[in-house]
Design a protein around this nucleic acid. Structure first.
Length: 500
DNA sequence: TTCCTCTCTCTGCATAACGA
DNA sequence: TCGTTATGCAGAGAGAGGAA
């Protein structure tokens, strides 16, 4: 085997055989539908495949002789970072799955997830970007949706993807017309959205009128609507993702076009190029399986209520990706979690501050800092303050930082919790005040249940596992207390001010 | 040589899109 | 709404390879 390995390395480096060697490796790459060098994929298989060539057999056996084979592989398929076949590698019907993936030109998991990398797309959504839309749902999709999602119903990934270079995808455009005699047509109740770079937010609207007078630059007038703010007072366990968003009329914005002459009853009308908006799906009855339902108030001017079919953050990511694809720009939303040295220094200072007391009282932010007037902030604020230190006041013993990946109120609160507990002295008793009930519920649930599979399916389980590891290693006694949000609580307001 | 296992290919059925 | 068409899946059968 060592002789064969030596021969392999010789063939790979010899100018006479190097090109043939590369071609053979490329054939293996195509055979296993792997976007980069197939060496590690072949070695990751549990046993040699019957369809292995001699080269693949030797590469597979190298791992048993502690021989590492590295190559400067340049034939890498771009467009993603997580190959799908990595998840299917040891399934019984690997080659069947690969044939299906090959027909669909699908390499990466990035291609079948939402632009925010948090949710898997439904098969209906994936089909829209396939050239061939016929046929049944492939078995590899069923397998992936069952294994890497926390819940097959909402298709939330157990660990979000880090989409550094998301695949450029243009959304579906509103239908054009063929009748040149009538260039101005009604909107036909179609809903569209687009990314507004000036306000850095998604704009949602309903098409009122299409104008095809200039066939190459068709324009549309849309009625501007905004998603309603979820009432955190009624259900504090709802997050911005799990609460359904209803659409209501917007009372006017800077995008309003005063030149629309069709009707004067509209308050905010936006004029856009047809090619700059994409069609979105709206439902008239909420789907309770995916979201917590929040019934909006019915008014005389808004008799029929419409709901988003996707979380607002996912839809915003789609709009941003559509905008970037159309304008060929890079992402303007920060897409990586970053904690600066300043924040680390701040944490270390608090940690090194002598804690003469054994009883700390912490106040956390509420989630109003994350969603403000239905605008998605580009970061989440994590902050807390110690309120009953015997020597120092709360303003001095406070911590505040911003994380810009996957804005979520529950994640913000759990990040604040883990950063606060990390500064506590061993054997301390900590009383924590928070206005987010779901944090208390999750803490109570995980305190009673050992870290089993259910623990792993909990949202932000990595953060929660860190929390419980700190509690265990520092022998902390933690008590969580629910306080009412938006009341005149001095410390809660102070935490709010710190977050903003 | 026989038996077992695994893979590949073919065929029938199911499913979904599309057009009339 | 219905018929046509394209595609995928499941199962049966053939063939190759390994073990006894």
């Amino acid at each position: 085997m060592k002789a064969k390995a030596s021969l392999l390395i010789t063939q790979a480096n010899s100018p006479l055989t190097a090109k043939i060697f590369k071609i053979l490796l490329m054939l293996s790459q195509m055979k296993f539908w792997y976007p980069t060098s197939p060496v590690k994929f072949i070695q990751a298989l549990k046993k040699p495949h019957l369809s292995f060539t001699v080269l693949e057999h030797i590469i597979f056996m190298l791992k048993y002789y502690n021989i590492e084979f590295n190559s400067s592989w340049v034939f890498t398929v771009k467009g993603g970072s997580t190959p799908i076949v990595d998840y299917l590698i040891n399934t019984p019907k690997l080659l069947t799955h690969i044939n299906s993936l090959r027909k669909k030109n699908t390499f990466y998991l990035d291609q079948i997830t939402q632009p925010d990398g948090v949710f898997l797309k439904s098969w209906q959504e994936i089909k829209r970007i396939l050239t061939s839309k016929k046929g049944r749902t492939p078995s590899w999709y069923k397998y992936i949706s069952e294994t890497i999602t926390t819940n097959p119903h909402n298709l939330r990934l157990s660990s979000p993807l880090d989409l550094i270079n998301p695949t450029p995808i243009l959304g579906k455009r509103p239908r054009s017309i063929s009748n040149i005699n009538n260039p101005i047509v009604k909107g036909n109740n179609k809903w569209v959205a687009f990314w507004d770079p000036s306000s850095k937010m998604i704009i949602i609207g309903r098409i009122i009128e299409k104008n095809f007078t200039n066939r190459t630059r068709a324009t549309i007038y849309i009625k501007h609507l905004i998603p309603t703010i979820p009432s955190i007072l009624r259900d504090n366990s709802s997050t911005s993702r799990s609460t359904i968003q209803a659409l209501t009329k917007y009372q006017g914005c800077k995008l309003h076009s005063p030149y629309f002459t069709g009707s004067f009853s509209y308050i905010c009308i936006i004029n856009k190029l047809l090619e700059s908006v994409f069609v979105i799906r709206i439902m008239t009855t909420p789907d309770g399986r995916k979201f917590n339902f929040e019934t909006p108030q019915t008014t005389s001017s808004n008799k029929k209520t419409f709901f988003l079919t996707l979380p607002l953050q996912t839809l915003s990511a789609q709009a941003l990706l559509d905008f970037n694809t159309r304008t060929n720009q890079h992402s303007i939303l920060p897409n990586s979690t970053h904690v600066s040295d300043h924040y680390v220094h701040n944490l270390l200072w608090i940690n090194n501050t002598p804690h003469s007391c054994k009883f700390l009282d912490l106040f956390f932010l509420d989630n109003s800092s994350i969603i403000t007037l239905n605008r998605i902030a580009h970061f989440i604020s994590n902050c807390w303050l110690i309120t009953n230190h015997p020597m120092m006041d709360a303003a001095q013993l406070s911590f505040h930082c911003k994380a810009n990946k996957f804005p979520s109120s529950t994640r913000a609160e759990s990040l604040a919790l883990v950063s606060a507990l990390a500064t506590c002295s061993p054997n301390s008793s900590i009383m924590i005040n928070t206005d987010l009930k779901c944090i208390i519920d999750t803490f109570t649930y995980l305190s009673r249940n050992p870290p089993t599979q259910r623990f792993l399916k909990c949202n932000n389980y990595l953060i929660w596992s860190a929390i419980f590891k700190i509690i265990k290693s520092h022998h902390l006694t933690v008590t969580l207390i629910k306080v009412k949000a938006h009341l005149d609580d001095h410390y809660n307001n102070e935490a709010d001010a710190l977050a903003n």
